[in-house]
Design a protein around this nucleic acid. Structure first.
Lengths: 134, 134, 134, 134
DNA sequence: GTGGTCTAGACCACC
DNA sequence: GTGGTCTAGACCACG
């Protein structure tokens, strides 16, 4: 799986890492139980600080995406993280704002929903392909 | 329009202000040409520094949501901001991640789309009500 | 002569007035000795404060564009303002920056000069027409 | 690169900084990818507040002249800012006034164009020299 | 009255 | 180390 960092982005590097790893899991590029590169390895590959990778891994651990084993390093958890009340609350807040912004900018409901549907289908399709391919 | 700030949030205060003002515009609570409180007034009401309000207003001005008149202060622009290529790019990036996260957490496509639809309808309905009420 | 104020501009209203009056003189819409509207009249026409018009007129008086007579109000001076050393200095400073910015943005020398030439010719032509028409 | 601030000028300090940095880029004194002093460093050197430097840097970032990297601070962007429609509009407005003023003050078209040409050539020459010198 | 600018100094996140 | 955010308080230009 290829990780791309935009050093000019306002988004913290660890957050960029976190998001791309979650997207990788959604697409099935990272499967349950799969080991991620070591902190040291990944940091060197991307050319960033070791602590930055560490932070991303630890956030994902706290969210329930990864387990971190002292010997084997980080791997994708065998169960997906729970959709807690906190998650739903923050999702609602985030989504409401995005919809408000899109609505103001003249984006139609259908166009927006269609786009969301496409993204969902991409993840579903990508996972199915990989599962069949195994 | 009531603005609520969460001082514990990691999200900057000016960004919280920005988002709530956009949501207010989407709901029609803030109508075209409507004057917002002066930076000093709003800062005092919320209990924050005037520079923080100023920053929120200026970000919204740059985005095309507000105009700032030397005489009357800030007011809602009579045209909505353009949905530029930059906007679509960042929306895609943001939405893709949110969908990935939701998908991983077991949220179904239908549930997600339904929720988005509800938010859209809320804004549409809210605006219609206010327009009829005028 | 029609004066248009952009209340949303960052440029002070009195400065917008000043510039448009100078452009009017350059185009020959305002001829030597021609009386400008009274401060009170112009302020009411545009819908701005009386003091704002006053400031514009006084700046133009100091620059040598207008003479202000207590009885007849403001009128275009019969001689053009001198191109003082101060003027040349500030012109150089301003022009150098504009050229630097244009150059960085990829504007060619020829394109830039061509544009300046067009503007010059417009003023020359406009004045000639009016002088012939009288 | 030496930056000179006129504390008596009506032009805001951050705007003076902005202009001189753009001129520095045009002259090639600041090359693509070159790092600018940190806000604290530059502020101390000039004897102004760090927020003022920060504002200048951020304006230049928004214009597309600089990128601000969390790790390295501000640096000259590898691509020059686009000459947008907004840019051309404001350039036209500005240039038209300057030409009108110069014309009224008896400055001939040839003299004006000659001067613009000289400035352009200075930037072109300065950049060439530096590129050869590298 | 309005916002714009500047200063001074604090704390924080990120790297 | 870097910039980002927030506060507090000052002065100014504009209208």
């Amino acid at each position: 799986m290829i990780l791309k960092i935009d050093f000019e982005s306002e988004m913290p590097i660890y957050e960029q890492l976190r998001r791309q790893i979650i997207e990788g899991i959604a697409r099935g590029e990272l499967n349950i139980g799969e080991e991620l590169p070591s902190v040291r390895q990944l940091a060197e590959d991307i050319g960033i600080n070791l602590h930055t990778v560490n932070k991303a891994y630890n956030v994902l651990k706290d969210e329930g995406y990864l387990v971190i084993d002292r010997r084997k390093g980080a791997m994708v958890k065998d169960t997906f993280p729970k959709a807690t009340k906190e998650y739903y609350d923050s999702l609602e807040k985030e989504l409401k704002f995005i919809v408000a912004d899109a609505y103001c900018r003249g984006m139609g409901k259908d166009e927006f929903l269609k786009q969301c549907e496409i993204y969902f289908d991409e993840y579903i399709e990508s996972r199915r392909e990989r599962e069949n391919g195994r």
